[in-house]
Design a binder for these strands. Structure first.
Lengths: 167, 167
DNA sequence: TTATATTTTCAATTTTTTCTGAATTTACAA
DNA sequence: TTGTAAATTCAGAAAAAATTGAAAATATAA
């Protein structure tokens, strides 16, 4: 298989995976496209590569920058903006984990805390429900620790420690 | 806040979280409903609690059983099927992680393996792309180890080891 | 400045996903 | 068996999400 074809397939697969995990397919595809691109691409390049509209390309590029997965770059003598992706897959994983925690998990955990604070009654049912809320929070806290740890170490260091942990 | 109201809110929040992570909102809500329910519920109960149609309730209950998050139970002298949820939040987390890995991550990793196997050329570009594929696979392998480990230990044991790891 | 290239916005449209509800099938008690 | 309650299916409807494309705003080189 030619490299161009292989890259196209990766972009497709990445798009599918994203959509299964609640991330807009185009956004994942743009991310993959820039991940495999040797050089920064302009909005126009992205439009052409993925055959999508200007508005769509623009919105998703902007979102990816907000996620911290892309950077804007300037090419001197060129008026256009260019985008390039973080290429370190470990860093990408950490960034995505942190962002999803911040955007989606944390609001949920806050809501649970609020529920627990406001919960009335001392019935057995109330106690069970309280325990459920605490259990969910505990798992949230563990995920948090894990993500923080991931953010602090390099990939290989994480792999080593994980290996020891598993044994 | 009354317990019934608190439970309803949890069901709503759970639904939102699910939809953000690519899981149909109704499915998450049904799961939460059974998670906070003191007793098994029938399809009819679920329809009434969430004000959804029979078809919708049926399909999502079936899917939840396939995910391993619900069990069918029989109440003697009653012709209806009842459903009850696994209540151990740690086990739920492990089940969800395993299922998502099996259904979504593994197909992606297989596709990547295939791409790598079939990749032609020894150009610098090809080597870089090859490295990218390997890096993605490596992270997949780490996620796999982590999930397996989670499946083997209890929640508190995991928390302890994680704590040591982080230090 | 000014002309124009580029970016941004967003109402309307298209696509995808989810849901409904009635018809069909299946399972059970008598 | 037979009658009926419950489970299952699925075509069409509704809702939600994504996308388009053109108009407006902004930025830059000359």
């Amino acid at each position: 298989m030619k490299i161009e074809e292989a890259k196209k397939e990766l972009v497709q697969n990445w798009g599918v995976l994203g959509s299964q995990w609640g991330i807009n397919r185009t956004m994942s595809q743009i991310h993959a496209l820039l991940l495999v691109s040797e050089k920064p691409l302009s909005t126009e390049d992205v439009m052409n590569e993925l055959t999508i509209s200007r508005g769509n390309a623009h919105t998703n590029l902007k979102d990816l920058v907000e996620w911290g997965l892309l950077n804007k770059t300037i090419i001197s003598g060129d008026r256009k903006e260019y985008f390039e992706a973080e290429k370190d897959v470990w860093k990408i994983a950490v960034t995505v984990a942190k962002e999803r925690k911040r955007r989606e998990l944390e609001p949920m955990l806050k809501a649970i805390q609020k529920l627990d604070d406001e919960l009335e009654g001392k019935s057995e049912e109330a106690l069970k429900f309280h325990k459920l809320l605490k259990d969910i929070q505990q798992i949230g806290a563990q995920a948090d620790m894990l993500i923080n740890f991931m953010g602090k170490v390099e990939n290989n260091s994480f792999a080593n420690k994980l290996l020891k942990l598993v044994k």
